[in-house]
């Protein structure tokens, strides 16, 4: 999942060409991903991780870096498993 997200950002969303992207790069403040890019990223994550991101979950703490995104996905998958 980590690789998939990083590659997707590099290939499809980055507003500048970058060689290296790590999971701690701030996606929101750096301008690396613009607002449409963030929406595309959310759709990508929904499909890849098979989760549903509610509008009220569109917060900085869930999407600031790839690291934040991975933790968010894990917590979503956890809570969905519990419900099942």
């Amino acid at each position: 999942m980590k690789k998939k997200i990083l590659n997707y950002i590099k290939a499809n969303l980055a507003t500048e060409s970058i060689d290296e992207l790590d999971i701690y790069e701030n996606l929101l403040e750096s301008g690396l991903v613009d607002s449409i890019g963030m929406i595309q990223l959310v759709l990508f994550i929904e499909t890849e991780a098979q989760i549903k991101v509610a509008p009220e979950e569109m917060i900085i703490n869930n999407f600031m870096t790839v690291d934040h995104i991975l933790k968010f996905i894990a917590s979503k998958q956890n809570s969905e498993e519990k419900q099942v």
């Binding site: 701030n26 403040e29 991903v33 963030m38 509008p55 569109m58 900085i60 703490n61």
Partner: peptide
């Protein structure tokens, strides 16, 4: 308003 909040509407609202 910071760039990050403008990309995350729920954070902007708060």
């Amino acid at each position: 308003i910071p760039d990050a909040h403008l990309k995350m509407p729920a954070s902007l609202s708060a």
